[in-house]
C-alpha cells in the first residue's frame, strides 16, 4: 500500500502541490491525471525518493520513506520515466540492462519470453535484433513497458507510458497493464482513453 500523507512540494519558491493526501491499495492500478505543471510527475518521482516532499510523508506498506528505507523501496519498484533515451545501442542491450543489476539477475527473461510479450504488445519479432535508433517512439515505449513488467516488481511507476502510441496500441497497453495482477501500478497520463479505462483516477490540479 502506498500512502501519501499531507504532501507539499515547493518548486522555485512556489507551491507545486499542497497538502495532498491519498492512499493506493496493494494491487490497485491508479492513474494520475490533470493539467501540466501541477506535480503529477513529481508525485510519481517521490515514491522511489528522487524528489522529497517539503512537507508530509510517504509510507509504503506502513514504513515511512526516508534515507534508511529508500533502498528497500527501490528494490521493489519498476520505474519508467517520461520520454528519454538510454545509451544502449541495440534493443537486446536495452532489454537486458536492468537484468544485469544484482537484484534482477535471476529474472532475466529468455528470448522466447520476450517475444511472447512482444506479441501481446503488438511488436514485431524483428525489433529484438534492431538497433535502438531504428525503432519508433511508440515501439520504444512498449518495449520499456514490457521491461517494467518483466522485472516483476510490487510497485510499477509509469510516467506517460502511452504518449507516443496509436489508438490500437493503447488498447493493447491497457490490457497489458491490467494483466499485472499482483503489482500496484501508479501512472501519469494525459490520454483520455487511457485514463477512462482505469477504475482509480486521481485528479491532480487546482
Amino acid at each position: 500500500m502506498i500512502e501519501f500523507d499531507n504532501l507539499t512540494f515547493i518548486y522555485d519558491n512556489k507551491p507545486l502541490m499542497q497538502h495532498f493526501t491519498c492512499c493506493i491499495a496493494r494491487g490497485e492500478k491508479a492513474v494520475l491525471y490533470g493539467p501540466s505543471g501541477h506535480g503529477k510527475s513529481t508525485l510519481l518521482a517521490s515514491v522511489p525518493g528522487f524528489v522529497l516532499p517539503d512537507e508530509g510523508s510517504i509510507r509504503i506498506d506502513g514504513r515511512t520513506l526516508d534515507a534508511t528505507t529508500v533502498q528497500q523501496v527501490r528494490r521493489r519498484t519498476a520505474w519508467l520515466p517520461q520520454e528519454f533515451t538510454l545509451p544502449y545501442d541495440t534493443i537486446q542491450e536495452l532489454i537486458e540492462a536492468p537484468f544485469r543489476l544484482r537484484i534482477n539477475q535471476a529474472l532475466k527473461p529468455s528470448r522466447e519470453t520476450v517475444l511472447e510479450h512482444f506479441d501481446r504488445l503488438g511488436l514485431e519479432h524483428e525489433l529484438y535484433d534492431k538497433r535502438s535508433i531504428e525503432i519508433s517512439g511508440g515501439q520504444r515505449q512498449r518495449i520499456m513497458l514490457m521491461i517494467a513488467a518483466l522485472l516483476q516488481k510490487d510497485i510499477v511507476l509509469l510516467d506517460e507510458p502511452t504518449s507516443a502510441l496509436d489508438p490500437d496500441s493503447i488498447a493493447r497497453v491497457i490490457n497489458y497493464i491490467h494483466s499485472l495482477h499482483e503489482a500496484t501500478v501508479l501512472m501519469v497520463s494525459h490520454d483520455a482513453r487511457f485514463i477512462d479505462s482505469f477504475d482509480r483516477k486521481i485528479y491532480i490540479g487546482d
Binding site: 518521482a45 522511489p48 528522487f50 533502498q71 527501490r74 528494490r75 521493489r76 519498484t77 519498476a78 520505474w79 520515466p81 528519454f84 533515451t85 538510454l86 545509451p87 540492462a97 536492468p98 543489476l101 544484482r102 537484484i103 534482477n104 517494467a148 522485472l151 516488481k153 511507476l157
Partner: peptide
C-alpha cells in the same frame, strides 16, 4: 547529461554503486 539513466537504474533496483558504475 545522463541523469535519466542514473535514475532509471536506481528506480529499477540498482544499488547506488551499480547505478554509478556506467
Amino acid at each position: 547529461r545522463e541523469r535519466q539513466l542514473y535514475l532509471y537504474l536506481l528506480g529499477n533496483g540498482a544499488t547506488p554503486g551499480e547505478a554509478l558504475a556506467p
